[in-house]
């Protein structure tokens, strides 16, 4: 496959924090128009991986290329074709929805920011929120406005960090439907992290499972479930969380044994 077919290529990403290694040699490739779910228990390294891919956090090792632009050097050029949504980020206070969207349309360098913002709101069925203050919106509405913001410039890749966290199923479905339509109509590739396994199964073509900073599975949802001998992704998720907890307990026991032996020796 030609490298031009990939919107994202991350190789051997490593990130060390003071508390330890958060990401340990992650490889991640996303083709144009592909929808990929990045899953894993808390602390698996999902958000750190996303932030390294976006050039916001600098990796200790490895490389990232977005649409042929090496990161972080090519970040500004790459971001012209990348959108980012995080379910946990609020909309800025003291700004109306349309003002917020126009600001981002300008940051993306779009020519007709007001028309683009209005079109984005209509596309996701939230044009009536145009004059609302960001603080007046429900969680679901904020997420939808976040998706509108990230899609204003028709990105080739949209990165979504827990986009439907704390949303009720009806709103989550609207977000998912909107994202699927966006991906199909514009050929936008999606990279989604989520703790909602059903959502990922329904939205994504491919799933990458992270555990303790490493890729432990990469494939279609049913293939991964089969690989781990589980019924579905939720079973795989619970299994990996158990493995992580067991490893943590074993390491704590080992440390305790070392302390005990040291005490006995002295």
């Amino acid at each position: 496959m030609n490298s031009a077919d990939f919107v994202l290529r991350a190789r051997q990403l490593v990130k060390d924090y003071r508390r330890g290694r958060a990401v340990d040699g992650v490889d991640l490739e996303i083709k144009a128009g592909e929808r990929v779910g990045l899953l894993g228990p808390n602390g698996a390294g999902k958000t750190t991986t996303l932030l390294m891919c976006l050039g916001v956090v600098r990796p200790n090792g490895g490389s990232v290329e977005i649409l042929g632009h090496p990161m972080p050097r090519g970040r500004y050029a790459a971001m012209e074709r990348v959108g980012f949504v995080a379910g946990y980020l609020p909309l800025p206070e003291r700004m109306k929805v349309d003002e917020y969207l126009v600001m981002f349309a300008r940051l993306y360098g779009l020519r007709n920011p007001r028309a683009v913002a209005q079109h984005g709101l209509e596309r996701f069925g939230v044009a009536h929120l145009s004059r609302a203050m960001g603080t007046e919106l429900s969680s679901g509405q904020k997420t939808l406005i976040g998706v509108v913001k990230a899609s204003l410039h028709r990105p080739r890749l949209m990165v979504l960090d827990e986009p439907t966290a704390s949303l009720d199923p009806e709103v989550a479905l609207r977000v998912r439907t909107g994202l699927r339509e966006l991906s199909e109509s514009d050929g936008t590739a999606l990279l989604v992290t989520s703790h909602n396994m059903v959502e990922v199964e329904r939205l994504c073509d491919r799933v990458v499972f992270l555990s303790a900073g490493r890729v432990v599975a990469d494939g279609r949802a049913d293939e991964i479930a089969q690989q781990f001998g589980r019924e579905d992704l939720e079973g795989v998720f619970l299994h990996l969380a158990e493995v992580r907890d067991a490893a943590r307990d074993a390491s704590r026991d080992a440390a305790r044994d070392v302390d005990r032996l040291a005490t006995e020796a002295s």
């Binding site: 916001v56 971001m79 980020l89 993306y108 360098g109």
Partner: peptide
Amino acid sequence: TWSRNLLNLFTTPTR
């Protein structure tokens, strides 16, 4: 920082 908008800004082409 107060409106937690930094990450949104860092993920645009803004220098």
